[in-house]
């Protein structure tokens, strides 16, 4: 009962902070609100029996990814993007509204309206880090390797893209 209450509470927090995040004009505030939302989600994960994932959510998302966002924002000295008159035709400006409404309707229908399992309750259960690790490195060993490659590619790619022209030239001269 307490858990149920906490779930709704956390859900409300996540929704509110997310909504606040997306309406911010200043990206720093947006990131801060998003961190709050991620904390709330991490707690929900814990509540749903995924303690390790909850911890990783906090560490990886809040601790690494969001911090990366902040770094970039501060590095770039971003001036808020001013509202511009859209050059797109009139009907195009209504498109996002319609699209959002439609996606909402379709997802509601698909996930909740038509899904037979939707009415089932989520049982109290939790996966120990041991179970988790066991499954991860046995059944999903290949996926882990692929993801590792993925991460190293991303690191190289980010490094390459981040080079300025001047530094690139200098590096080419050195090598």
């Amino acid at each position: 009962m307490t858990a149920t209450l906490i779930f709704y509470l956390l859900g409300a927090v996540a929704l509110v902070t997310t909504a606040l995040a997306i309406i911010q004009r200043n990206p720093v505030y947006a990131v801060i609100y998003l961190v709050k939302s991620i904390f709330a989600l991490a707690l929900i994960f814990y509540l749903l029996g995924a303690p390790l994932v909850a911890a990783l959510q906090v560490i990886v998302y809040a601790g690494a990814i969001m911090v990366l966002f902040l770094f970039v924002i501060m590095m770039l000295e971003i001036t808020p993007v001013s509202a511009r008159k859209s050059s797109a035709p009139g009907w195009l400006s209504w498109t996002p509204v319609v699209l959002v409404a439609l996606v909402l309707a379709v997802m509601t229908l698909l996930l909740i309206g038509l899904d037979p399992v939707a009415e089932q309750g989520i049982p109290r259960w939790h996966a120990t880090p041991r179970d988790f690790g066991y499954a991860l490195f046995n059944e999903y060993a290949l996926a882990v390797k692929i993801i590792s490659f993925q991460l190293s590619f991303a690191a190289v790619g980010a490094f390459h893209i981040g080079l300025t022209e001047r530094r690139r030239a200098r590096m080419e001269k050195d090598s």
Binding site: A88, P96, L99, V103, V106, L114
Partner: peptide, 28 residues
């Protein structure tokens, strides 16, 4: 093809909605 990322996204989503809508219709 006006170079706007979000306009491309509209196209992507309309397409996706069309497909999902079709499945939905059949399910209904």
């Amino acid at each position: 093809a006006d170079g706007r990322v979000n306009h491309y996204l509209y196209g992507l989503l309309w397409g996706m909605l069309l497909i999902v809508g079709w499945f939905l219709l059949r399910a209904v």
